[in-house]
């Protein structure tokens, strides 16, 4: 293809802006890549035409080009990703005209669906009646960790102003999508309404984390609670419970609170796992220092003994 933008558009150097525009429109209609998704030659041609029009379609730029101030490729643009590039991928299904249909018994169902030969809603004569499925509408909803841990109801407002209540079941996972049948766009003729597809994003919690239906958390304890053992309060997703710290507990020790995890209503509820962490006060006072010194003077305990043996 020629480098001369005038030749690319097929116009004379003396062409008016109107002639240039007309010629570009004619070429664009013929060459647009989304009308020829499998012909990469057409895409290259179209890009050349678009680039040429970019230059000559703008009287200011055209003047500078004619004066030799900028060359034909004067404006580098990042390469455009055409629609067919995306539409060919699985995500492109969103815009399929027959989306929402499916479940084929045999090959003839499949083909009639693909090539649109079936008659929806029984409108026998082609063109007499038209029925079509409503489109699916997608929603994205942020919910708090606690809401999915316990289950909740949420109201979402549709673009047309109506609102629907959706029930978020306990134990829903981050990124999961719920399909609400018939809550999408209205059908055409006797066609069914589309579905609402609600994707849930779970905001993380400051204290609780999830592992399936189990809850993980870290609980700070004092030195005396670790040494002597204690009964302390621990938060769970269903309120505070009392738990027993056994005598002589180390940092990192994991305790299980059975059934205090997420209860989905199906099967056994998950557990909560509490990881203990011994925390010392910001300022060590004299009595604690004395205690540590006295203990050190007669202790033979070496927590790093195993570590040394293995390295």
């Amino acid at each position: 293809m020629s480098d001369d933008p005038y030749a690319v558009l097929g116009v004379r150097k003396s062409a008016t802006q109107d002639e240039i525009k007309k010629s570009y429109r004619k070429l664009a209609k013929r060459l647009h890549p989304d009308l020829h998704p499998s012909d990469s030659g057409k895409q290259a041609e179209f890009q050349a035409v678009a680039a040429a029009y970019d230059l000559l379609g703008d009287p200011e730029k055209r003047k500078r080009f004619d004066a030799g101030e900028i060359d034909a490729s004067g404006q580098e643009r990042p390469e455009r990703q055409y629609y067919h590039h995306y539409a060919g991928q699985d995500a492109g299904r969103r815009y399929d005209p027959s989306a929402g249909m499916g479940d084929f018994e045999d090959a003839s169902d499949l083909f009639s669906e693909i090539f649109g030969r079936h008659q929806r809603g029984g409108g026998g004569d082609f063109g007499r009646e038209f029925h079509a499925h409503g489109s699916d509408i997608r929603y994205q909803l942020d919910v708090d960790f606690m809401d999915v841990a316990r289950g909740t109801k949420r109201q979402i407002t549709l673009p047309d102003g109506k609102s629907i209540e959706i029930t978020i079941p306990a134990g829903l996972k981050d990124g999961q999508t719920m399909r609400l049948r018939g809550k999408g766009g209205p059908g055409i003729g006797q066609g069914q309404a589309g579905d609402a597809l609600v994707t849930i994003t779970v905001r993380p919690h400051a204290i609780f984390a999830r592992d399936g239906d189990n809850i993980e958390m870290e609980l700070p304890i004092t030195l005396d609670e670790a040494v002597l053992g204690a009964k302390i309060e621990a938060p769970t997703i269903s309120g505070a419970v009392t738990m027993t710290i056994p005598k002589g507990t180390s940092s990192g020790h994991r305790l299980r609170l059975r059934g205090k995890g997420i209860s989905t209503g199906k099967g056994v509820a998950g557990d909560q796992f509490v990881r203990l962490r011994i925390v010392l006060p910001d300022k060590i006072d004299g009595s604690m220092e004395d205690l540590a010194k006295r203990w050190r003077d007669h202790s033979t305990f070496d927590p790093r003994e195993e570590l040394r043996r293995k390295t």
């Binding site: 570009y24 429109r25 664009a28 209609k29 647009h32 989304d34 455009r80 990703q81 055409y82 629609y83 590039h85 995306y86 539409a87 995500a91 492109g92 969103r94 815009y95 489109s135 699916d136 509408i137 997608r138 929603y139 994205q140 909803l141 942020d142 979402i156 549709l158 673009p159 994707t199």
Partner: peptide, 29 residues
């Protein structure tokens, strides 16, 4: 068809490519 969130409609690259195609069809052609 963007995804609707509390912050309003949100568009991804597929939607943007489609919007560009619509601009081509409507404006250039």
């Amino acid at each position: 068809r963007p995804v609707h969130s509390l912050a309003g409609p949100m568009f991804d690259e597929l939607d943007i490519a489609r919007i560009r195609l619509l601009c081509d069809l409507k404006k250039d052609m």
